[in-house]
Simulated assay, not measured.
Amino acid sequence: MLLPTTTVALRRSKPAAAQPSSKTGLWELPGTWRFDPSSHTCPDPSSKPISSLKDGPSSVVVDCDLRGALDVPIGLPDVVWRGGVDLNPIDVTDIDSLNWLEALVWPEHDERRARLRAAARIVAQDPPLLVAGDLNAEVANRAAQAPGDATLVVFHSAVLAYLEVEDRDRFVDQVSALDAVWLSNEGVAVLPELAAQLPTGIAVNGDFVLAKNGVPVALTARHGQYYRALPTT
């Protein structure tokens, strides 16, 4: 669900990804996944799953129904650096930790469990930088580690709801001051300043608000099942 916004924002640039509250580092490796937007109604009915792997399709396929007027990505960004921070990062190369993660997946969700295992195998081959710490204490430090010639992208999903209001405000102030593209994907009540910018009369129905640099661009399903682009005017 972050892919359409990231792709448009980073045309002709090399992204470096920093993720606050990155429990496992799985979502710091978008260039290794395969994304399937084929359910989107677009002018090209032959749309196929997107993959940037040179040696064939990825074993991890992420489905996302793209809705509304938007540019359907034709490729994945070439992420040149990745870093994340979490209070308690989980090492997916440790079998006990991976088993614990699998236990959090609902029993009937076999497809999600299989995707988790496949993603963990890929991460184990090329682990991203994961630091234990508070996101407000570490986000600026991680951002400073990104290559200077890359476009820094700070992204988070379903994170800020777990912070006190004053800590959310502190984070927003910090990330807004960075020389970075800020992508947030949070519940509509988490960042009221974003909710206030939504078009009048739009039905949210429990969706998350995906925003770029503090401006809403789409409504998304909580687990990324769909991306509904917001009107631009």
Score class of each variant (00 low, 15 high):
Arg121Glu: 13
Pro77Val: 12
Val165Met: 03
Glu102Thr: 11
Asp36Val: 12
Trp100Ile: 00
Leu29Lys: 00
Leu135His: 12
Thr5Ala: 15
Thr93Lys: 09
Ala103Thr: 13
Leu129Glu: 15
Val123His: 00
Met1Ser: 12
Asn136Ile: 10
Gln225Leu: 02
Glu102Lys: 15
Trp182Arg: 07
Trp81Ala: 06
Leu104Tyr: 08
Thr6Ala: 14
Val204Glu: 03
Ser52His: 03
Glu111Gln: 07
Val153Met: 14
Gly214Pro: 02
Ile202Lys: 09
Leu183Tyr: 04
Gln145Leu: 15
Val80Ser: 03
Asp149Arg: 10
Ala69Trp: 03
Ala143Val: 15
Pro128Gly: 05
Glu193Met: 05
Pro15Phe: 14
Arg170Ala: 08
Ile202Met: 06
Trp33Met: 09
Ser13Lys: 12
Arg11Trp: 05
Val153His: 13
Arg11Gly: 13
Asn185Met: 09
Val105Phe: 09
Tyr162Leu: 02
Trp100Leu: 10
Phe35Ile: 09
Pro127Leu: 06
Ala120Leu: 02
Arg142Phe: 15
Phe35Ala: 10
Pro199Val: 01
Val175Phe: 01
Asp167Gln: 09
Val175Ser: 04
Gln197Met: 07
Val175Asp: 02
Trp100Gly: 05
Ser58Asn: 12
Asp91Phe: 09
Val123Met: 01
Gln225Glu: 13
Ala18Asn: 11
Gln19Glu: 15
Asp110Lys: 14
Asp55Tyr: 11
Ala137Phe: 11
Asp149Lys: 06
Val188Arg: 04
Ala103Cys: 09
Trp106Glu: 13
Ala69Leu: 08
Pro4Val: 05
Pro4Ser: 04
Ala103Tyr: 11
Asn136Leu: 10
Ser59Tyr: 06
Ala218Phe: 01
Pro199Glu: 02
Leu191Arg: 04
Val217Thr: 07
Leu87Gln: 13
Ser13Thr: 12
Arg228Tyr: 04
Pro128Asn: 00
Gly31Thr: 12
Gln225Trp: 08
Pro37Leu: 07
Val139Thr: 14
Tyr226Leu: 02
Pro192Lys: 03
Val123Glu: 00
Ala120Tyr: 01
Val105Ala: 05
Phe155Glu: 05
Leu3Arg: 06
Ala146Phe: 11
